[in-house]
């Protein structure tokens, strides 16, 4: 599902004394079937933008296009129910949405709401649980008996079971241990490739952006300040530092080598860096 924002603005509590601007003049395009990363500071408007992608809030200015659905300030929330069935949204700390008596029932909740029969929903739920690596023995357990990492997986399965075309991930790995983070990111990247999903990832971890993203959108102060390929975004180190955004380790390393006279092609992830270095030193490509 291709996504386009055209001059989108959103004001919280419009027409009250509490009115505050969330977004203004937001323009960007997220290509269909690609992995798009959204980066920017806390409070830069990323999460507000995400709520627009699922029609949870309606913009107060401008126009959004998500596949065939057009959303303008006069759009009624009801009109968006159909679109929502094709969008999977994993919020920050999604384990807060668990409520059912068993893991399986909780994962079935989404598909059932969008009109699947109980049998279809159960099949979809089981597939989703296995995809996120939850063994069958947990199906009948209460979600509240699980560990934090397992709860996160169940909550993500609850979104994947809806079998969305557009998967939005709002800092899905926050608060997990490094191994858990790595596993989840590998899973998302694999799903994106296998199912040709359009993935939107909000993150503070530039390593993931460098490694997985095809396209990057940078938010600041409620609007988009830059958009492009990771190579383009990470090229201007001075600009990134001014925006207080990190530079991927591989790029930092390559830049340091460059000052010592070792020239490499643009690299963003460690594997590519290792390959280039091995080649220059006359060794064979390393095994990934």
């Amino acid at each position: 599902m291709a996504i386009n924002f055209n001059q989108v603005g959103f004001t919280y509590q419009l027409n009250t004394p509490f009115a505050t601007q969330g977004l203004h003049d937001v323009n960007f395009t997220m290509p269909e079937g690609k992995f798009t990363a959204v980066i920017g500071h806390t409070g830069s408007g990323k999460s507000t933008m995400v709520q627009h992608l699922d029609g949870l809030v309606i913009p107060t200015a401008g126009e959004i296009t998500i596949a065939e659905q057009r959303i303008v300030p006069t759009t009624k929330p009801k009109e968006l129910n159909k679109m929502r069935a094709h969008v999977g949204l994993v919020f920050q700390f999604p384990e807060a949405q668990l409520f059912e008596q068993t893991v399986l029932k909780d994962v079935m909740f989404g598909p059932k709401n969008f009109g699947k029969t109980a049998t279809e929903a159960e099949a979809a739920a089981k597939r989703a649980l296995r995809t996120v690596g939850m063994a069958e023995k947990y199906d009948e357990r209460s979600p509240f008996e699980l560990s934090g990492g397992q709860m996160r997986r169940v909550a993500i399965a609850g979104v994947l079971a809806m079998e969305p075309d557009l998967l939005i991930l709002d800092e899905p790995t926050a608060g997990l241990d490094p191994a858990g983070q790595e596993e989840l990111m590998t899973l998302f990247a694999r799903l994106q490739k296998e199912r040709h999903l359009t993935v939107v990832l909000i993150t503070h971890q530039m390593e993931y952006v460098a490694q997985y993203a095809d396209h990057v959108v940078v938010f600041e102060g409620g609007t988009v300040v830059k958009e492009g390929t990771p190579a383009k975004i990470f090229d201007d180190v001075a600009w990134l530092q001014e925006k207080q955004l990190d530079v991927p380790i591989a790029k930092q390393f390559a830049d340091k080598l460059a000052t010592k006279g070792v020239t490499l092609d643009t690299v963003l992830d460690i594997d590519a860096l290792a390959d280039q270095l091995a080649e220059q030193l006359g060794g064979s490509a390393h095994v990934h």
Binding site: Q51, D54, L56, K78, N81, R84, A85, V87, G88, L89, F91, P94, A96, Q97, F109, G110, K112, N113, F114, G158, V159, M162
Partner: peptide, 19 residues
């Protein structure tokens, strides 16, 4: 705030409040 964010998460899973 928390009620609002849980509501959003459940709406994303197809719950229709106020309907």
């Amino acid at each position: 705030d928390e009620a609002e964010s849980i509501m959003n998460a459940q709406r994303a899973r197809g719950v229709e409040f106020n309907e």
